[in-house]
Simulated assay, not measured.
Amino acid sequence: MTIWLGTPSVDGLGGVARVLGEWQVEAGAVQLHPGDLGWFRRFGGERTAAATRVWERDGETVAIGLLDEPDLLRLAFAPAVFEDEELAAQVAADIVDPSRGVLIEGKVYVEAPVGARVKDLLSKEGWGIDDPWTPLKRELTEPVEDSGLAIEVIAAETAHIRTAVQRAAFDGSTFIEERWHAMAEGEPYANARCLVGRDGQGEPVAAVTVWSAGPGKPGVLEPMGVHRDFRGNGYGQAITLAAAAMLRELGSSSALVLTPSFNVGAVATYRSAGFEPLPETHDQVRSG
C-alpha cells in the first residue's frame, strides 16, 4: 500500500480541519487540533496550505502535519494508526529527507503525540528531546463558575479590540486587524470564538480565542493573554474561566491548553481556573 505525502489546496483546508476534528477524542493523546490550523490561518489561506502536510493511504488521510515554523513540524495521526509501523516509518523517512520538503535542513523540531510510533523511530535515529511542555485540561461536564469580568464576543466590527489586546499581551505580536479577518475567513473559525474581558471601568484587560472540534470533543484555548498594563489582578484566571464556559456552550467535552513548563506563571493561572496538568510532553529535536 502506497503512502502519499502532499499539501492541500486552499479550498481543501476545510476538509483537513474536519479530519483533525474527528481525530480529537477524550481518551486519546493530545495532538494537533483544528484550532491550531485555525490560528495559523491568520497568515492567510495560501500560507496555511503551504505549511500543511497530509499523508494518505488508499485515499484515506492517516496523518497531518503543520509547519508552525520552518523548523517545527506538529503532527497528528488518526487514532487507529498511532502504532502503525509502516506509516510511522514513512513519516519518519519523509521528515529526515530534505528533498521531501517537510522540514528545513539543520536543527529542527517535531511535536508528535505521546504514544505515536513515529516518536520511537525518531529516537532510534538519534533525535533528542527538547524542553518540557505542560498540557492542562478542564472537564466541562459541570457549569463553569462566573469569571467576574464583562465578556465581549468579538465580531468583525470589533476585531480591532481583540488584536490590540493581543499585541499588548505579547511582545512582538503581529496580530493586526487584517490578520483577524484572515483567520475568521477560515472554516475552523466557524467553531471558534474570540473573547475580550473588560474590567469595572470598561477597559479591555484580557483576551482569548477558543476553538471547538465539535460537540463531545475536546476544545482548545489558543491563545490567551492579559494586557501588560493590567497584570497582577487575576484577569488571566478570569478570562480562562470565560474561555472554558464558552467551550462548554459550544458543546466541547473538555478544554485543553498547552504551555511551556518553565512558564510557571501560566501553569499556575490555568490551574487556578480549574485546569489539571497532564503528564509533560517534549518536542523531539535533531541537532542538524
Rank of each mutant, 00 (worst) to 15 (best):
S212K: 02
V16H: 00
V62W: 00
A273Q: 10
L241N: 11
I239F: 07
R271E: 13
E60F: 00
S173C: 05
D84Y: 06
E85G: 12
A150W: 04
D131I: 15
E86P: 03
D94V: 13
L72F: 09
E60C: 04
L5T: 09
M224T: 13
G14R: 07
G126R: 07
A29L: 03
D97H: 01
Q31H: 03
A266N: 12
G148N: 11
G38I: 00
V208R: 12
V81W: 12
P70R: 13
L20C: 10
A164V: 00
T2F: 02
V91L: 01
P218D: 06
V110D: 07
I129W: 12
G225H: 10
V264C: 13
A93H: 08
Q31P: 00
V108I: 14
C194I: 11
T52D: 07
D36E: 15
D146I: 08
K107H: 09
G288V: 04
T52Y: 01
L67E: 13
L195C: 04
L32Y: 03
K119M: 14
T240A: 15
W180T: 12
G101V: 12
A49N: 05
A244Y: 05
Q24V: 10
E60P: 00
T61Y: 03
P218K: 08
T269L: 14
E280M: 07
A93I: 03
L75P: 01
T281A: 14
E187N: 00
V102Q: 05
G59F: 01
F262M: 12
S252K: 07
P204V: 01
F82C: 04
I64L: 14
T141P: 01
D97A: 06
S254A: 15
E22C: 06
A242M: 00
A76S: 11
D131S: 15
G232W: 00
A76Y: 01
F230I: 02
Q24P: 02
D130W: 09
D146P: 07
Y109S: 14
A168S: 12
G274P: 06
A51C: 08
T52N: 05
E249M: 04
A51T: 04
A164K: 02
P277G: 12
G44C: 10
V96F: 07
E22S: 11
S212C: 02
I104W: 04
L278Q: 13
G128D: 01
A17V: 00
V110G: 07
G265K: 14
D36L: 09
D94Y: 09
E26H: 01
V110R: 04
K119N: 09
P98D: 11
H181Q: 15
A93Q: 11
P143C: 12
A29I: 02
G115V: 13
E56A: 14
T269Y: 05
